[in-house]
């Protein structure tokens, strides 16, 4: 029995001293192999009496199990240690630059247009577009601006020839779609697009972007216009702004109003952006002029409608704090890359 205990203690000690997996494997072969001390103990068994044999056999088995268990435990410890060494050897500088897939940017004008489109598509509007090279007829005549109307002075237009021009407002889209939908009312439309005027300085570009809205149906009111514009302002600038109407003039609407929004910079308290007034002019709008309806073959006694037109660059300048409208068209990458974010 003492012999068994000695073998066991020697074995455990050898396991304890094994420093790596190879050494441990050697210990396993040495002690538990066919020529090892445990097998040798079994050889002793044949010389023992019948009573002693089972006892001795059980003790040898216990010894074998204990050594096997110790080897397994040691093996786990050594594996852990080896893994830790390996992991430590794989240490890297976490502060070096990551791999950046290069993100492009969406044009700020487009960001605003898409925001408006999403807002109005949600209200059931259709997005309508039209040509930028346009006929005088759709740009002016049908918008109730006949030849030599004084309002033509308000818009210095790029004429191409006597009939053709570069559209001076997206109202020309409205006039085309009004013609298209005259027998298919009600209609709700949003018309974004580029427009052109012979004008150029820090607040005017000869090309800029407008977005007009048009709703025609029965019982459409000026109050509906105000509610719709409040909805739009909430969508673009966030809730908490109020809007107000001021009388104005456009040949294609009657009544016509300018629309102001409480300054988003100072919440209406008055600041440099709103020139101390607390209000910022954002768009022009009104109720569709009866002459415009008549020219489209729509009876103004049955139908009414509202229209509004907003300058996209103006909204973008207000929303993103851009000072010079020409920045939109210089297309300097340092400007464009500011619009990589989703918001």
């Amino acid at each position: 029995m003492d012999t068994i205990e000695t073998v066991k203690q020697q074995g455990l000690s050898a396991i304890e001293q094994a420093n790596d997996l190879d050494a441990l494997n050697q210990v396993r072969i040495t002690y538990l192999g066919k020529k090892g001390p445990v097998q040798d103990l079994m050889k002793i068994m044949k010389d023992l009496s019948a009573e002693e044999k089972p006892k001795f056999g059980a003790a040898v088995n216990d010894c074998k199990k204990a050594l096997a268990a110790a080897i397994e435990a040691k093996q786990a410890t050594l594996k852990d240690a080896a893994l830790n060494v390996k992991l430590e050897s794989e240490k890297i500088d976490l502060t070096l630059d990551g791999y950046h897939p290069h993100n492009g940017s969406v044009n700020p004008i487009q960001l605003i247009i898409e925001a408006l489109e999403d807002c109005f598509v949600g209200l059931g509007y259709t997005i309508a577009e039209g040509p930028e090279v346009e006929l005088d007829y759709w740009n002016f005549e049908r918008a109730n601006i006949p030849h030599d109307h004084p309002a033509r002075d308000m818009q210095d237009t790029f004429f191409i020839d006597v009939n053709r021009l570069l559209r001076s407002h997206t109202t020309s889209i409205q006039m085309r779609v009004l013609d298209e939908y005259s027998a298919d009312l009600p209609v709700k439309l949003l018309c974004p697009g580029k427009v052109y005027r012979r004008d150029s300085d820090a607040t005017h570009s000869h090309q800029f972007t407008q977005c007009e809205g048009l709703v025609v149906g029965k019982n459409i009111t000026l109050a509906d216009l105000k509610g719709t514009l409040q909805f739009m302002v909430d969508a673009i600038f966030g809730k908490g702004r109020t809007i107000r109407f001021r009388p104005s003039y456009f040949p294609f609407t009657e009544p016509s109003v300018e629309v102001d929004m409480t300054c988003h910079n100072c919440n209406g308290k008055g600041c440099a952006l709103c020139k101390g007034t607390g209000w910022i002019e954002i768009l022009g709008s009104g109720m569709v002029h009866p002459h415009v309806f008549e020219m489209a073959g729509i009876d103004p006694n049955i139908y009414s409608g509202f229209a509004f037109g907003v300058g996209i660059e103006r909204l973008a300048m207000l929303k993103y704090g851009i000072n010079d409208i020409r920045d939109f068209y210089t297309n300097d990458l340092r400007f464009l890359e500011a619009f990589k974010r989703f918001n």
């Binding site: 259709t126 997005i127 509906d224 509610g227």
Partner: peptide, 24 residues
């Protein structure tokens, strides 16, 4: 309305047939 002023104008949305807004 320009002489009375627009201050009392309420905010409503058009009540007309529902339409399905979408992009083409």
């Amino acid at each position: 309305i320009r002489m009375i002023g627009y201050d009392d104008l309420t905010n409503t949305l058009p009540l007309c047939e529902n339409s399905f807004g979408s992009l083409n």
